[in-house]
Design a protein around this nucleic acid. Structure first.
Length: 305
DNA sequence: CGTTTTTGACCGGCGC
DNA sequence: GCGCCGGTCAAAAACG
């Protein structure tokens, strides 16, 4: 486990321009009256060479940052896979106990999970025969906001609401109303642990395109939720409590349809920000790096899925 | 007046 | 078989 962690102590010069330029720039018009043309030329030349040198140094630093980001992403993916493996085992146990399903394949054994999971897929719903893909989205909202609305770009029609046993807050049931034949369903319920977190569970895949968002509602809107295939969820301790949605092996292909490059899911942003904040204490660097990771991370996800 | 939401009834799976 | 529970239906109400 320890081998997957990255040494996050960076020794990078974040704002070289500020320091160096400030040190060389203070002399201006006050002296300008006393220098002749030759000295002015010399000064401009020195400044130019300095800028070129600075540019070269920044380029090298940029390259270094890019490499570190690559390593960071690789390590993150490795860690994510490890966690998914661990939690997929746990979730099977959870499923067996909470839903009290028939223990026909010795699910609690823990040593035969690979073969038993295949059996689940083939025998769980004999009459349906269509394996619906399930994904889950966690969305932080205002706890006082009682509407179970998750903006995900699709149009939903509510067809039911239930108070479940394990959670005091009601669960809302939605169907996709964009296409009559669209089989996708969505369940939205507040987290029992943290009422400020909405948990939206998607079942099935849309058989139509996602509608264009109205002008003005930017794709980068942070409240736009993006479904991510999941086996479970984890709580991350840190500056800001965040809910992560980790990927279960075998469900990855679902994300191809649901994750758009133009959308900036709040979950990813929070995750990325936390990764960046662990790199350095410099707030400027944190902001710059988190922005860079966001772009890089999205790109990585798209390429992978 | 058409569409959406609400909400109690109903249904099926599961455990006892 | 009965009761519990999650999910769905559908009539009524609310809404634009």
């Amino acid at each position: 486990m320890d081998s997957t962690w990255v040494n996050t102590s960076l020794d990078l010069n974040i704002s070289p321009f500020c320091k160096n330029i400030d040190a060389t720039a203070p002399k201006k018009e006050s002296e300008g009256d006393f220098v002749d043309g030759f000295e002015q030329k010399l000064r401009v030349k020195e400044e130019a060479s300095f800028l070129v040198e600075e540019l070269t140094r920044l380029s090298a630093e940029n390259k270094k940052l890019t490499e570190m980001l690559t390593v960071l992403c690789e390590n993150y993916n490795a860690l994510q896979n490890q966690f998914a493996d661990l939690m997929s085992k746990n979730s099977e146990k959870e499923l067996a106990t909470s839903r009290k399903r028939k223990a026909e394949m010795g699910i609690n054994n823990g040593t035969t999970e690979s073969s038993s999971s295949d059996e689940i897929d083939s025998t769980e719903k004999p009459k349906g025969s269509i394996k619906t893909k399930i994904s889950r989205v966690f969305l932080r909202t205002n706890p006082s906001d009682t509407s179970l609305v998750v903006k995900d770009g699709y149009q939903w029609r509510k067809y039911g609401q239930k108070v479940t046993r394990d959670n005091p807050s009601p669960r809302a049931y939605f169907k996709c109303s964009l296409a009559p034949s669209c089989p996708v369903k969505k369940k939205v319920q507040r987290s029992a642990d943290d009422p400020s977190i909405l948990v939206a569970t998607y079942e099935g895949e849309h058989n139509h395109m996602q509608p264009e968002l109205p002008l003005g509602s930017s794709h980068h809107c942070s409240s736009l939720a993006v479904p991510i295939p999941t086996a479970t969820s984890m709580r991350v301790s840190g500056p800001a409590t965040a809910t992560l949605d980790l990927i279960q092996a075998g469900l990855l292909d679902n994300a191809k349809e649901t994750v758009k490059e133009t959308e900036a899911p709040a979950i990813q942003e929070i995750l990325v920000q936390q990764m960046a904040s662990s790199l350095t204490k410099d707030p400027n660097f944190t902001a710059a790096l988190s922005a860079a990771i966001s772009g890089r991370f999205n790109q990585t996800r798209i390429e992978k899925w």
